[in-house]
């Protein structure tokens, strides 16, 4: 047996050297993100939300402006929970950004989020210093910007993310899967019962530059 071993290793020879230390091969983040984005879009659309994807944060402003133009909703938006891409909107020439609380009905809110869950098609909003929970319910149109690293696979991944936050958790954490609706006036359900009539999600990602 030892003879065979020696003979074989003599042939294999130079292939026997240990490898240089390197990271194990991982699935490309773009592929993982794209799969999640596809699932998220299918689920959120089933919940009557609309979804677009943009490759980098720079695409968010034009995407919002296009959406508002298409739906004839004006250019005025209120910003809340400003993640990097949302904060950058102040520089978007086609939008007129307002600070402060969301006023009367009819307003458009643009917010960042804590996370989004692909399997359920929900965006997750958390109240805090830069986001009043009611803003997402008083607005008539809510546009949510989801950054690449925020798109999670499942509710279980969301729970892990919540567990990583310092206790106590934010006062109000909402999983939102579409516009407000009611079936109390018969079938089919009607949109805009108390909260928004329109929920539009912008998924940022797919290119390394988004990180």
């Amino acid at each position: 047996m030892n003879t065979a071993r020696t003979a074989m290793l003599a042939v294999i020879g130079r292939h026997g050297a240990p490898p240089a230390p390197a990271a194990p091969p991982v699935m490309s983040t773009e592929i993982v993100w794209a799969e999640r984005a596809r699932l998220f879009t299918a689920q959120a659309t089933a919940g009557a939300a609309t979804v677009v994807t943009v490759p980098t944060g720079a695409g968010v402003g034009p995407a919002i402006a296009d959406y508002l133009d298409g739906a004839r909703l004006g250019a005025e938006v209120h910003l809340s929970a400003p993640t990097r891409a949302v904060a950058g909107l102040a520089l978007e020439p086609r939008l007129s950004c307002r600070a402060g609380p969301v006023p009367a009905d009819g307003a458009t809110l643009v917010s960042g989020c804590l996370a989004a869950v692909a399997a359920e098609g929900v965006v997750v909003l958390a109240s805090g210093a830069t986001h009043a929970a009611q803003a997402a319910f008083l607005a008539a149109t809510h546009i949510v910007v989801v950054e690449a690293g925020q798109l999670l696979e499942s509710l279980e991944a969301l729970w892990q993310r919540l567990r990583a936050l310092p206790a106590p958790l934010p006062r109000q954490i909402s999983l939102v899967c579409g516009p407000s609706r009611t079936a109390d006036l018969g079938v089919p359900s009607r949109l805009g019962a108390h909260g928004p009539l329109r929920v539009h999600v912008i998924l940022v990602g797919g290119r390394p530059a988004a990180r």
């Binding site: 359920e120 098609g121 939102v176 407000s180 909260g195």
Partner: peptide, 10 residues
């Protein structure tokens, strides 16, 4: 699959 709003209040 889910209701429109699921909110955790703390």
């Amino acid at each position: 699959s889910l209701s429109s709003y699921t909110t955790l209040v703390h």
